[in-house]
Design a protein around this nucleic acid. Structure first.
Lengths: 353, 353
DNA sequence: ATGAAAGCGCTAACAA
DNA sequence: TTGTTAGCGCTTTCAT
C-alpha cells in the first residue's frame, strides 16, 4: 500500500503539502502542486478513506435500513437515495430487517459503530425505544415511508390517509358500499394511516364501518392472498377490495382468480403502490401511486442537510401527495385508453368492457 | 463520544485490557473483565469501527456494484449477498452503474478508497482494463451474472448457454422454426452466451440461422418492447419470440398486445428470468429460471473465502444450472402445475433445487 | 496477567 | 508558502 508519506517523499515535499493539494483547501504553489500530482499518479496513490474519516470524524457514509429490498417499492427508494447520496459525496451502507424490530436495532448498532454520518430508516412495527437516544447522541435519523416524528425523527412519506381516502371514495363513487380492506401489519404507521383513510371515506359517505371487512395482512404476497380469500368467502361478500400494498394486491388478484371470480365484473379491486409493469397484469390495476423516487430523494436531502448542519430545529414530517391511477380493475373501462386486444387464456374475464 | 480511554479510566485498567476483553483474543482475569464490562455498559461505549479497521487493515466491508438495483433479478441477488455477508460479519456498500463502464470504474475507485475488503461486480459491457490491476493489488473481486474469468476474476453465474438452449429447444419441440430473439446489450457476456445457446439449438435441430431475427435490446422494458415490435412487423413474422431478460419480456408482452396479437395463439413467447408475481401476468409466462439467490450466496461465499485466505489459486468460474419453467405463453397449458408463488426471501427461499 | 507505547494513514493547528 | 507534529480511536507487540 502506498501512503501519503510515500507520495511526500517521492515529490520531495511534506505530507502536509500533499494533503493540501489533495483536499484543495489550502494554497499550494503551482510547482509543488504539479510535483505532487505527478507523484500521485506515478505511484498510483489512493488516499485511505478510513484514515481520513477517522481524522475528520465524518465517514461520508449513510446507513439505509429497510425491511426488505426485494419489495419493488423499496428498490426504487434505494435507487433514489443512492443517486442523491452519491451526488452529494456519500456512499450507502445497506441493511434488511425483515420487519423485525430486533434485527433493526441490531443493524442500527452495527452501522453506528461503523460511524455512519446519518441513518435512513424504514421503521418496523414495534418499540423504537432506542431512537431518542440515537438522536440525543447527535446522529441524524430520517424515517421513510413510516413516520416516527413523534419520537423526534424527521420523516418523509406519502400522505397515506389522503391516498386511502381517494381510493375508497373512488370505489364508493362507483356504487360500492361493501368494501373489504386488507391492511399491512398493525403497528406500522402506514397501516394505521391507510386504515384511517378508509374509515374516513366511509364516514364521509355515510357508510357504516364493519370490522368484519378489515383483515390484517403482512405486506407480502401470500398473506395478501390469504386475507383476500377470507374476505371473498364471507357470506355477505364485499363487492370491492382495497388492498393496501403492492405485493398483497398481486396476492389478492390470485385469490380472486382462485375463487373463480372475475375482476372487475364480480369484484372491484384497488391497490396501493404502482408498478412499472402493471401494463401486463390482467386486469390492469387501478392503484394509488406513491411518489417513491421523490420520497427517497427528499429524505436523502433532508438527511444530508441535517448532517451538514444546513438544517436545524425540531423534526419535520414531509407528506408527499399520492395519486390515483385509474385503470381497469374497478370497472371504469370508459375512462380507458385506446383499445387493446386481450388474451383470455387461463382466467376467463373479459379484460375490461 | 466515549472512547476506549474513557472506559479504561472508568474501569481503572489500561486500554490494552479493555481492548483485550472486547476482542476476546487474550486472557483477562474475571475481575478485570467484569469491571470493564460494567464500565462499557455504564458509559454506553461503542467501539469505533473506523479506528479498528484502520489499525487492522480490514474494513469488513464488501463493495457491491451492479447495473441497476431496480431490476428484480439484482434485487434478489443483493438480498442473497447481504444475508450471506452479514452472517459472516461483513456489511455491504452499494453502487449502481446503469450499465455504464465509466461509472463502474468510478465506483470501483470510490469503494477502493473506502477500503472495502472485496468487491462484487456485475460487469457492464465495455473494457475492464482496470481489473487486472485491481487483482494484482490484492483486492479480491468476484463477478456475478457476467463472467470475467478471462481477466482473472472469479465469476459465478447461470449456465446461460444451457438455459438459452433449453428455451429454444422447447420452442422447436413445439413446432416452431422461425424464432425471433431479443438479446441484451452486445458485449455483456450473458448476452453473448444466451445468443450462443439460441444458435446452438437451431443448429442442432437443423434450422438455418437468420440474422434478421436477432435484435439487440437494452435489458429494459421499453427497449424490449421496441425490439419485439420490430420482429412482429417483419414480413415473414416469427411464430415465436425468445426474450433474454425479465424486463424485456414484459416489454415484449406489451408489444404483442399492442400489435393486436394474442399470445400464445398467434405467437409463442419465452422469457429469461422468473418473477415471483408471474402468476398474475396473462398469459402466465414460460421462462428460464435462474437460481438467483444461490448465485448471490455462492458469490458472496467465494468472495469471503478469498478475503480470508481460505481459498487461493487461479480464478474459477461457477456455472449454476438454470431451469425451464413451463407455463402458458408457449401454449402448453396442459403441462401446467398448480400455480403457486415462489418466495425468494432469505431463509425460506426455494431457489436451486 | 497487565500495561506502556508505537503506529495504522490521514488532517489541521501551529511554527517557521 | 511550506513543514513539523500532535492526535483521530484503536490493536498489538513487548516489557514487566
Amino acid at each position: 500500500m502506498v501512503t501519503i508519506r510515500d507520495v511526500a517523499r517521492h515529490a520531495q515535499v511534506s505530507v502536509a503539502t500533499v494533503s493540501a493539494v489533495l483536499t484543495g483547501n489550502k494554497y499550494v504553489s503551482p510547482e509543488l502542486a504539479a510535483r505532487v500530482r505527478t507523484s500521485v499518479s506515478n505511484l498510483d496513490y489512493r488516499p485511505n478513506g478510513l484514515a481520513r474519516s477517522l481524522k475528520q470524524q465524518r465517514s461520508h457514509i449513510l446507513g439505509l435500513i429497510l425491511s426488505d429490498i426485494t419489495n419493488p417499492f423499496f428498490t426504487t427508494l434505494v435507487r433514489a437515495v443512492e443517486d442523491t447520496a452519491r451526488s452529494a459525496g456519500y456512499t450507502l451502507l445497506l441493511g434488511n430487517t425483515d420487519e423485525d424490530v430486533v434485527k433493526e436495532e441490531a443493524y442500527v448498532e452495527l452501522l453506528r459503530s461503523r460511524q455512519v454520518d446519518g441513518l435512513m430508516l424504514v421503521a418496523s412495527a414495534g418499540e423504537h425505544a432506542y431512537l431518542p437516544g440515537l438522536l440525543a447522541a447527535g446522529l441524524p435519523v430520517v424515517c421513510v415511508d413510516r413516520s416516527l416524528v413523534a419520537l423526534g425523527a424527521d420523516s418523509v412519506l406519502t400522505d397515506n390517509v389522503a391516498g386511502a381516502y381517494q381510493a375508497v371514495s373512488h370505489l364508493i363513487a362507483l356504487g360500492h358500499r361493501r368494501i373489504g380492506i386488507v391492511t399491512g401489519l398493525t403497528g406500522v404507521t402506514s397501516t394505521n394511516q391507510r386504515l384511517d383513510g378508509y374509515i374516513q371515506a366511509l364516514a364521509t359517505h355515510g357508510i357504516a364501518f364493519d370490522p368484519v371487512l378489515v383483515r390484517e395482512g403482512d405486506s407480502r404476497l401470500d398473506g395478501g392472498a390469504a386475507r383476500a380469500a377470507e374476505l371473498l368467502r364471507l357470506p355477505d361478500r364485499p363487492t370491492a377490495l382495497f388492498v393496501t400494498n403492492n405485493l398483497m394486491t398481486i396476492g389478492a388478484m390470485r385469490a380472486i382468480d382462485d375463487a373463480g371470480l372475475r375482476c372487475p365484473e364480480d369484484i372491484a379491486l384497488i391497490g396501493f403502490d404502482d408498478f412499472e409493469w402493471t401494463s401486463v397484469f390482467r386486469p390492469r390495476l387501478t392503484t394509488v401511486r406513491q411518489p417513491v423516487y421523490e420520497i427517497g430523494k427528499a429524505a436523502a436531502r433532508l438527511l444530508i442537510q441535517r448532517i451538514e448542519g444546513k438544517r436545524t430545529g425540531t423534526a419535520v414530517e414531509l407528506l408527499l401527495p399520492p395519486k390515483l391511477i385509474v385503470r381497469e380493475s374497478c370497472g371504469e373501462s370508459s375512462i380507458r385508453q385506446p383499445e387493446r386486444a386481450v388474451t383470455l387464456t387461463g382466467a376467463q374475464h373479459e379484460g375490461g368492457r
